[in-house]
Design a protein around this nucleic acid. Structure first.
Length: 341
DNA sequence: AATCCACGGGAACAGCAGGCAG
DNA sequence: CTGCCTGCTGTTCCCGTGGATT
C-alpha cells in the first residue's frame, strides 16, 4: 500500500509546495541578489513547529541552485550543532572542505578554511537556531562576504534575546518571513499530495484526510506522522486502504511517538531525571536531586543536574514553575496545545 | 540580620580522539 | 606501534546574586 516511504518522512521536501506561495516568494526575493553574484541580507523564518519553515527554506534554496548551480547550500541543525565548532564543522562538511578536518583542529583553523572556501557563494540554513549556545558564531559567519544565512527559529523575540549585542545589531536588518499554523483545508491539501505520491491510489478517503487534519491542529509534522503511522500499520497487516480503526489508533500515537523518540534519545541521567519528575508530577529541586541520587550508581553533581534541567526545559520536556525558593519542576505533556517553545 | 536555597556564569579539569615523531 | 601533544567536550568547582525563611 505504501509506494514511496520517503514521501511520508519528516525530511521530505516536495517538488511542488502546496500553499506557502507568499512565504516562498518573500524568501526568494531575499536571496535573489545571490543569483547576480551579490550578497543576500540575512533571512529569517519564524513560526511554530510543523508549519513548513524548514521545508520552505530548503525548497527555496533548491530553486535558487537551479538558477545558479554554483551556489552551495549548507543545512545545519542547531540541535546537534550547538557549539561554534560544530556549526563551522558542519558548514565545511557540506561545502566539502572537511576532508582532513578532525576533532583536534583548532576553531580558528576551521574558520580560516571556511573563509578561504570563497570560490562560490554559500547559503547556510541554520535550523532551530535558537538552540545555539554560542551565538557569536553567527557574527563570525556574517563577516564572511561569500556566506549568506537563512535563520530558522520559533519566535523572533526569544531568538534575539539569546543573541549577544554584536550579533543582535548585525541581524537587526534582514527579511522576516513568518509562518502561521495551517488551516484544516491546507493540511488536507498537503496530506492529499503526500498520499498521491506516497501511497497506492484510493488507499485513503478525503473524509479520513480531513479527520487527520483536524487532529493535527495545524501542525503538518503531526499530520504527516499520523498518516505515516496509519499507513504503516495498514500495510503491516496487508490491507490496501486505511480503515477508521487504524486511524483511531494512529491519532493519539503520533504525538506520543514524537515524545517517545525524544525521550529515547536522551542520555541516561536525563532520562532518569525525567522519570522522577514524571512520577512525582511535581517536585521541588531538593527532592528531585535526592530521588535522582538514589536511583543511579554514580550521580552527577547538583550543578550538572541544573545544566541538564535547563537543557530539558529547552526541549520542552520539563518546565520549571515559580522562581527561586518555591520552584518546582514538572513534565510538559506532549499533547499540550499551543506550546511556546 | 543572618541563613538558606536555588540559579547560572565562568574557570579549571579530565577524558578522548586523532596527528605526529621516533 | 608507542607515547606525547593538541584542542574539543562534558563535568565539576567556585562563587555572586537574589528571593525566602528563621
Amino acid at each position: 500500500m505504501i509506494v514511496d516511504e520517503r514521501v511520508l518522512s519528516e525530511a521530505f521536501v516536495p517538488s511542488e509546495v502546496v500553499h506557502r506561495h507568499e512565504e516562498i516568494s518573500l524568501l526568494s526575493e531575499a536571496v535573489e541578489p545571490l543569483v547576480s553574484g551579490g550578497r543576500a541580507d540575512p533571512a529569517f523564518c519564524f513560526g511554530p513547529t510543523g508549519v513548513g519553515k524548514t521545508c520552505i527554506a530548503r525548497y527555496t534554496m533548491d530553486r535558487l541552485t537551479e538558477k545558479r548551480p554554483a551556489i552551495r547550500v549548507a543545512y545545519v541543525n542547531c540541535w546537534q550543532a550547538y557549539t561554534r565548532y560544530r556549526v563551522l564543522y558542519s558548514l565545511l562538511e557540506t561545502v566539502d572542505r572537511a576532508y582532513d578536518v578532525h576533532r583536534s583542529t583548532a576553531k580558528d583553523e576551521l574558520f580560516g578554511r571556511l573563509r578561504s572556501a570563497d570560490d562560490a557563494p554559500i547559503v547556510a540554513i541554520l535550523d532551530e537556531v535558537d538552540q545555539l549556545e554560542e551565538s557569536a558564531v553567527l557574527y563570525d559567519i556574517h563577516r564572511l562576504p561569500h556566506v549568506s544565512v537563512v535563520l530558522v527559529a520559533n519566535r523572533e523575540e526569544e531568538l534575539f534575546a539569546r543573541f549577544d549585542d554584536r550579533v543582535r545589531s548585525r541581524f537587526r536588518a534582514g527579511t522576516r518571513v513568518s509562518f502561521d499554523r495551517y488551516g484544516a483545508d491546507e493540511l488536507v491539501a498537503i496530506l492529499a499530495e503526500r498520499a498521491r505520491q506516497g501511497l497506492e491510489p484510493d488507499s485513503v478517503s478525503d473524509r479520513q484526510l480531513r479527520r487527520i487534519a483536524d487532529a493535527a491542529a495545524g501542525d503538518a509534522r503531526v499530520a504527516i506522522g499520523i498518516l505515516r503511522s496509519a499507513a504503516t500499520r495498514a500495510s503491516g497487516r496487508g490491507a490496501d486502504h486505511l480503515t477508521d480503526e487504524l486511524l483511531d489508533a494512529a491519532i493519539p500515537d503520533a504525538r506520543r511517538a514524537i515524545r517517545r523518540k525524544t525521550l529515547e534519545n536522551l542520555p541516561d541521567h536525563q532520562r532518569i531525571l525525567y522519570d522522577v519528575i514524571d512520577e512525582h508530577g511535581e517536585i521541588d529541586p531538593g527532592g528531585l536531586y535526592e530521588a535522582y541520587e538514589n536511583r543511579v550508581e554514580t550521580p552527577k553533581t547538583r550543578r550538572t543536574v541544573r545544566n541538564y534541567l535547563t537543557k530539558m526545559a529547552h526541549y520542552d520536556l520539563v518546565e520549571a514553575v515559580g522562581e527561586n525558593r518555591g520552584r518546582t519542576y514538572q513534565v510538559i505533556e506532549p499533547n499540550a496545545r499551543e506550546r511556546t517553545h
